[in-house]
Design a protein around this nucleic acid. Sequence first.
DNA 1: ATGGCTAACATGGTTAGA
Length: 268
Amino acid sequence: MSKNALTLGTWNVNSLRVRLPHLAQWLATSPVNVLGLQETKIVDADFPAADIERLGLAGGWHGQRTYNGVALLAKEPVLDLVRGIPGYDDEQARVIAGTVRGVRIIDVYVPNGQTVGSDKYTYKLAWLERLRDYLAAEMARHPLLAVVGDYNIAPTDADVHDPKAWEGQVLVSEPERGALGALQQLGLVDVFRRFEQAERSYSWWDYRAGALRRNAGLRIDLILASSALAERCTGCWVDVEPRRWERPSDHAPVVATFDLTADEPIRT
DNA sequence: ATGGCTAACATGGTTAGA
């Protein structure tokens, strides 16, 4: 692997307090050196900064009580941290951005939406419009841009274990996929699909009804990259292993590697 | 089978997740 490899991960930990041991165990073997977390569920004053530092990570966090919360961490300095979407007075802590080795990284926890037509669904679609405007501006400022996180949208039916059962439901509905498509139309690429993947690859499995055992999952945790960055992507995978551990998050981490040394884009 | 499981806040039962 190149010395200038950026190994970028995203993980919805569903409570950082509960999942700190999982994070430690994962980092013991994972090559990840930049990591976006979602659903930290912890206020900034209580963020376990010392524990994170012991894991060799530093960066920024943006949390709130009980719900949501994101963190952008790395084994090297994270510069120019920005919390939330500038100009959007959102009381929910869902976005943090920073720069690592010249790559702008935006970590997002997209609203769940609960059910199609609910108030939360309306909020989700409005929120995604604000995200699109933010990303359009950031794309213009940062040629090397990654947008990682829990999108709470399965891009296509290939990302859904039972498309028939899920048809029209929240996380797969047409308006949600349209909103994700609008992000892709900005030039952002779902790098997971740039590589051959096993069929039925997912990143989230319900805690209930033996969903993991049946591989009844969805791929909703994504790494999107600007074209200049996507051209430098050398791999992308879901790391299912932490989902199999005791008391797991319901999400598995997703990782992508980028070779930043190349003067010329890498052909894949 | 409209259930199943987990976490926060609270301390039993609700809200939320996806």
